Computed example of a mutant assay.
Amino acid sequence: MAFNYLTDDVEQQKQRARYRARQCVIEQSGRYVKINDKNYVNFSSNDYLGLNHHPEINQALAIGADKFGTCASGSSLITGYSYAHQALEHDICDWLNKPKCLLFASGFSANTALMQALGHKSSHLYLDKLSHASLIDGALSSEAKVKRFLHNDIEQLQRLISKNQQAEPHDDELNQVIVSEGVFSMDGDQADVANLAKIAKQHQALLYLDDAHSIGVIGKKGQGSSSLADIDVVMATLGKSIATSGAFVACDKNLADYLINFSRHYIYSTAISPALAWATKKSIEIIQAEHWRREKINELSKLLTEKLSQKIQLIENSSSIHAIVIGDETSTLDVCQQLRNKGIWLTAIRPPTVPFNSSRLRVTITASHEVNDINYLASCVNEVIQ
């Protein structure tokens, strides 16, 4: 029978405790999630700042729908680019101090599009080993020469670039791009942004950062990695801290013009909903003004670190993401289920998303959580992980 691999491969996933299945969320509001008629304290949400269901953002969405419609009705190069999109792009440029901004349907498509655009046959791409799958896919599908440096290993990155320049000493048009995440999605640790920017400047390379998990959370006004150094190209999603949907790329005019003319992901995709763009403007306004949300995440993150037993293998960091490493897939799934029995919703992260034997619980702390939530989580984790 044809296509046997469809069932065979899924069956192998089950045998290796790597099978994935969707869960239908009935309700989701800040701290809680309702799944299969049961309420859980939710520690798997990327709504880091707790802005989902914010009344002012909801109101802006409704106003945007009335003014511009719920659908863009075309790509940005036909009739899909509305005043709502333009106004949002201008706000993002002001926020991150960038000349140009383009909106994309998703972070995955934005990353893939940019890696292909910057991945010219004359280019060299240097990716952090833990870069998101969309960056890796985009880089490998480009025409560029691709190298991956060990996670946050600045010295190895420096050696790779120097070796490459020695091999091509007379190439005056050596196009080099350093690629990293601002905050890494599975470990929650932060890139050494200042040193990456320094190396990029030293070697006349571009620095590209996926700021999906930094935007909103890092910086006095939530500018993400842009608050730490001058980043040449910033990509960030709208569906996490910003609490809407889509993504943006902030860059210079030359790259923006190139993408508008040559990026298939941008040219042939329907623009994001103008109503969502209008709601996103309001969300970014709130993010810049309400620094207390970032302060609360830091306070609760510190509390979790203090309350967890020392026998728990926690990857400590200053972001919203806290990885509790357990090891093998079966044990991780077992711990996950025990916590769900206690009313805590966490997701087991397993290979190939993370390296073999480093399966983990990915805990996300948001501004919606309270001290009692963190105390309860720590108590339950200490109890079920022996």
Rank of each mutant, 00 (worst) to 15 (best):
N317T: 14
I284F: 01
H291M: 04
A277P: 05
E299R: 15
K282I: 03
L300S: 07
L339F: 05
A275E: 03
Q313G: 02
E329M: 05
L303A: 12
S319C: 10
S269N: 13
T305A: 15
T305M: 10
T270I: 06
S319T: 07
R264A: 14
R293S: 01
D257S: 10
E285N: 03
S318P: 01
L304Y: 02
E329Y: 04
V335R: 07
L314R: 04
Y268S: 12
I326Q: 00
A289D: 05
L303K: 15
S301M: 07
D328Y: 11
C336A: 08
T332K: 01
E285W: 00
D257V: 02
E299Q: 15
I324M: 01
S263R: 02
R340F: 05
R264C: 09
A289R: 01
D252C: 14
Y266Q: 06
R293E: 01
E329L: 03
F262A: 06
D252R: 06
S283M: 00
Q337G: 01
G327R: 06
K296C: 08
D252L: 13
S301A: 15
S273D: 04
Q313P: 02
N261R: 14
H291T: 09
T330E: 13
L333M: 07
D328E: 15
E290C: 03
W292M: 04
L314Y: 12
Y258Q: 07
S273G: 09
E290P: 05
Q337K: 15
Y266E: 02
E306A: 14
E306G: 09
L300C: 05
S319D: 12
T330M: 08
L304Q: 04
Q338I: 07
K296A: 09
E290Y: 04
V335Y: 13
S273F: 11
A271M: 04
S318V: 13
W278I: 05
R294Q: 05
I260N: 08
D334V: 10
